[in-house]
Write a protein that binds this DNA or RNA. Structure first.
Lengths: 187, 187
DNA sequence: CCAGGCATGTAATGCGTTACATGATTTA
DNA sequence: TAAATCATGTAACGCATTACATGCCTGG
């Protein structure tokens, strides 16, 4: 068996061959909002994948840049990824720090809570704008079919947009609650 | 500094004094959908909190049941929780296995993908029903004010309902995509 | 000349998960 | 009589995060 981060790396390599550094970049850019892995995890994980025969690498010498190891997924790696793909996801040990804080927000002064959720609103609004932009750019080129790798990009960004839209709505509701609380205190 | 799981325990103790076992129960029932911690983590974490002076405990002897250690939050613990509460949450290393699988779903046969998302739809529908039920029961008693501990319960369950509703919608959309793909293959 | 990008790693520490360990009582 | 509940812990292992470590090239 493989760790989920191992599958995340395979998921990227299933699309194209990449170096460890490239993988770290893709983690930051493409799949950042649903999967992150530190680069310090990527290198040992790649070594492990190679041991299992799921990836191979070859050294690429470059002019005026450090040499890099280009990793390529093997047929066995692709099969392992496909087998994992359709297994029901683990009951997901969800860990949402924002909600954990919200659970205890009754302890704070309304003013502090207001500042807190206004900042959250800004943060989620920004992300919503980014995701909506990505979604639009994909749609302009036509909605990808399920057999297209770009379908994964599109399907996940749709979740991102829906998710952030709900959080924006929720933050606004939270802000309202604390504003009302403040107004009642003033009376 | 304290781990987030430490604050999760403080968040529960801020409402009432509990034993380690009780905390594990509350994790499963009340805050399960945004925070989980194994009981094997709870006991060392409680010891750590006690070292820091954030909680105290006393032994409660019980008839026909094992004795238990009842933990109570201290003023210092409450202050630590309040200070943490209003700090912006960490950029949240989101790890969503469902989306990671979706990112690579183009590798599978539509039939397998259909079975996969139908199962997900069932799962999220069930959770939506549960959360909607909790929300309704709270609302029947009147919406709690922000200074009420139950406001935390209500605010978080609202997110749960919105979240699951979006996932249900999204799963239905995914299923449609694969159904269309299958129909086109048949022609 | 300094910051940032490209490129690959190792080390330390701590958290999370799973399994191990015990034992009494209650309920089906 | 077997399983579930109450109750508290320890141990092993692996993954995640943060910091440490190096070094060349490019652009401002």
């Amino acid at each position: 068996m493989l760790s989920t981060s191992g599958y995340a790396i395979l998921a990227l390599l299933a699309r194209e061959s990449l170096s460890g550094y490239d993988i770290a970049q893709w983690m930051k850019n493409a799949i950042d909002f649903f999967w992150k892995t530190q680069h310090s995890r990527i290198y040992p994980e790649l070594a492990h994948l190679e041991e299992l025969g799921y990836v191979t690498h070859r050294l690429i010498e470059q002019k005026q840049r450090p040499a890099k190891k280009l990793y390529t997924i093997t047929e066995a790696g692709r099969e392992a990824l496909k087998a994992w793909l359709v297994m029901p996801p683990m009951p997901a040990a969800e860990r949402n720090e924002l909600l954990l804080k919200t659970y205890s927000i009754w302890l704070t002064e309304p003013q502090q809570a207001l500042a807190f959720y206004r900042r959250q609103l800004r943060w989620h609004s920004e992300r919503l704008a980014i995701f909506a932009g990505i979604q639009q750019r994909i749609e302009e080129k036509g909605i990808p079919k399920p057999s297209d790798p770009r379908f994964g990009d599109y399907a996940t960004v749709r979740v991102g947009v829906a998710y952030e839209r709900e959080y924006v709505t929720w933050c606004r509701w939270m802000i309202e609650q604390f504003e009302q609380e403040l107004q009642q205190q003033e009376k």
